[in-house]
Computed example of a mutant assay.
Amino acid sequence: MFNEFTKKVNTKNYINLNLSITVLLLFIIFAQNKYMSIEVKNITKTYGEQKALDNVSFSVNKGEIVGFLGPNGAGKSTLMKILTTYLTSDEGSASVNGFDVSSAQKSVQQSVGYLPEHNPLYLDLYVREYLEFSADVHKTDKSRIEEVITLTGLTPECHKKIGELSKGYRQRVGLATALLHNPDVLILDEPTTGLDPNQLVEIRELIKNIGKDKTVFLSTHIMQEVEAICDRIIIINKGQIVEDALIADLGKNLEKVFREKTK
């Protein structure tokens, strides 16, 4: 009888131990997902005979500002379009804020603010009118419009049609649109292309300030921009990741690192 009692106690302890381990593992998985804004695993994308992305893997933590660098045609825009659900990969998986880009597209879109390389704007609309239209698309409260106008420095120009704005202010409209639904992650594809030196400084400062509260993943060809804004770089060349490092750990000229990794 004593042996039966001991057996029952041991069985109960074994079950409790298994439950504790299961709970611990679930907590670890949850904690990892909680602090991971972007997760890319073995992504491959092919156009005809050309591999635009070849088994690409990396992750971006919450609150990081990461520069995504590479020569023209290296695969930067393709990956960004996959992360924002505009394209699907041939192989591999990716998630944004824990939402799978293939099976939870709507949730990904709600989590991401995206500024594509060629900023698509309705030039005949006034700035505020365009933002009201975008708020309707996102089903966002229109009180948010004044917040993003102030945040992006659009106040002096918000009475104009978008077609009357300078390139710098059009980029601000694009950023305001990306921020309108208050996403946790910003994905910016060459956000400072074509800007003059003054506009460059203004947009860089804007992105840096936004990055205090959000995860920012941006592509650019301007090394000074990366050094001024980013915490970390990921370099892609011919569809493959060739460098992933904190800028502080590189210990040498970023332009030199880029040339070495993309020869």
Score class of each variant (00 low, 15 high):
221 H>A: 10
30 F>T: 03
49 E>A: 06
226 V>D: 06
140 T>M: 14
31 A>V: 09
25 L>V: 01
23 V>Y: 02
125 L>H: 11
23 V>G: 00
27 F>E: 12
151 L>P: 01
55 N>C: 00
251 G>K: 13
174 G>Q: 06
247 I>C: 09
205 E>F: 03
166 S>H: 08
207 I>F: 03
199 Q>E: 13
33 N>T: 01
236 I>M: 10
126 Y>T: 12
87 L>E: 11
229 I>Q: 05
88 T>L: 03
86 Y>D: 12
126 Y>A: 10
156 P>H: 09
22 T>I: 04
46 T>H: 03
166 S>T: 09
220 T>D: 13
98 G>H: 03
71 P>Y: 10
174 G>T: 13
31 A>Y: 05
228 A>H: 10
58 F>R: 01
17 L>R: 13
235 I>G: 11
253 N>K: 14
207 I>N: 05
4 E>F: 06
211 G>F: 06
173 V>T: 07
233 I>A: 13
235 I>E: 11
246 L>K: 15
69 L>N: 04
142 K>H: 10
173 V>A: 06
219 S>M: 07
55 N>K: 02
80 M>W: 05
216 V>C: 11
45 K>N: 03
112 V>D: 09
41 K>R: 12
256 K>D: 15
176 A>W: 07
93 S>T: 14
132 E>Y: 13
34 K>V: 03
97 N>I: 08
32 Q>W: 05
214 K>N: 15
104 A>G: 07
112 V>E: 10
108 V>I: 06
21 I>F: 01
252 K>Y: 08
194 G>Y: 14
169 Y>S: 05
64 E>K: 08
250 L>G: 08
14 Y>S: 14
82 I>T: 00
51 K>I: 00
83 L>C: 02
258 F>L: 11
